[in-house]
Design a protein around this nucleic acid. Structure first.
Lengths: 193, 193
DNA sequence: AACCGTTGCCAACACGTGTTGGCAAACACT
DNA sequence: AGTGTTTGCCAACACGTGTTGGCAACGGTT
């Protein structure tokens, strides 16, 4: 909102903007939307709180920018149909170990309506469209995607948010071993007769 | 803190206490820990905010009282071993449709460390001990319980918190159909070789 | 060198929060 | 009837929040 939105020339303040964004992601991920204060984020980024306002307009605007997230779902067309679940779990685990964004979004979605809306968008659009590539019937596709989301988000929730000890201790391979068949069935299992 | 803790005679203010508790549960469930204000809870209970403090000491104390929760897991010893998953899903769905407490705890656990701790306690103690009734090896039992929790909480999270449309629209029977086999495998499936 | 937009900080505002102390009415009990 | 306790409300405090406006230093352009 400071310059023409589609201006492509780099601004001198880009490093500051990036620092703010990273600090915001970390704080939102660690504390959730309401506990993460602009002052704390600004302190992490070593700048004045008012800078955050100038560059991102408001706290909600900052969150909107910090919680931009792409699942980066792989192309599943050339995956053996029997290994879809396994590929998906692996992808998700790799995707959010080391990226705070999803955790931030997850934490915030519990209390912030806007964040919940975005979460809905991500899993409705990105996941559903991926599931649809090899699915058939429309409402069934949506339900399969929803079920996959329920297990995936439950995994993330128990492992990264609540930190249930057994879920934290299991290494990725063991999680894949247990969870992959679940997703597999949600994706390709035969619906109720 | 007002009277001898173990006094069993009813106080005249018990109805007020109960009203506060119910309003607190609803607010915590709807808004999460930080957004649910003492003033709003007091207004719902048609009482002065200072009453909340007198009866529950602090906001955290109020939450502690409001989020007291028992999973009320049924005795699984006389359930056919092949239907454990089904029984569990049914129980959970019935348990928290119409009781805000778990939703309140779930929302709060995302941002409030104390709530997360309590959540850990509930699923570690209650669920694990139930799983242990027919389980064998100790760390394996804990992991089975964790996996069950991941799917159960993921179900609750997507259905009641984020409200993913397909997860909201599915009726309980359909959820049972899909999720029961997952829990069944987490409970009785053969571990990694 | 003079100019103008950008980057940054400081101080402050308006507001909502949890929390407290005091005081009046209602009650219980002798 | 009189006394001590309980229940409730009011007003206020101290504090942290998001947010704003002004002002100094800097950078590039002419």
């Amino acid at each position: 909102m400071t310059a023409p939105a589609h201006s492509t020339q780099p601004r001198r303040s880009d490093v500051t903007r990036a620092a703010i964004l990273q600090a915001a992601r970390e704080r939102f991920a660690a504390d959730g939307y309401e506990r993460a204060t602009i002052r704390a984020i600004a302190a992490d980024a070593r700048i004045d709180p008012s800078m955050v306002m100038r560059y991102y307009g408001s706290k909600e605007g900052l969150f909107g920018a910090a919680a931009e997230f792409d699942l980066r779902l792989p192309d599943l067309t050339d995956v053996p149909p029997g290994r879809l679940g396994e590929v998906l779990v692996r992808h998700f685990l790799a995707r959010w170990e080391g990226d705070d964004t999803l955790v931030a979004l997850l934490r915030a979605a519990s209390t912030n309506p806007g964040a919940a809306e975005r979460m809905r968008g991500i899993f409705a659009d990105q996941l559903t469209s991926t599931v649809a590539t090899f699915g058939t019937e429309e409402t069934m596709t949506a339900r399969r995607a929803g079920l996959v989301a329920s297990q995936i988000l439950g995994l993330a929730f128990t492992r990264y948010i609540v930190r249930l000890p057994p879920m934290v201790e299991m290494d990725p391979e063991e999680l894949v071993f247990w969870v992959a068949p679940t997703l597999q069935r949600y994706l390709t299992g035969q619906p109720e007769s």
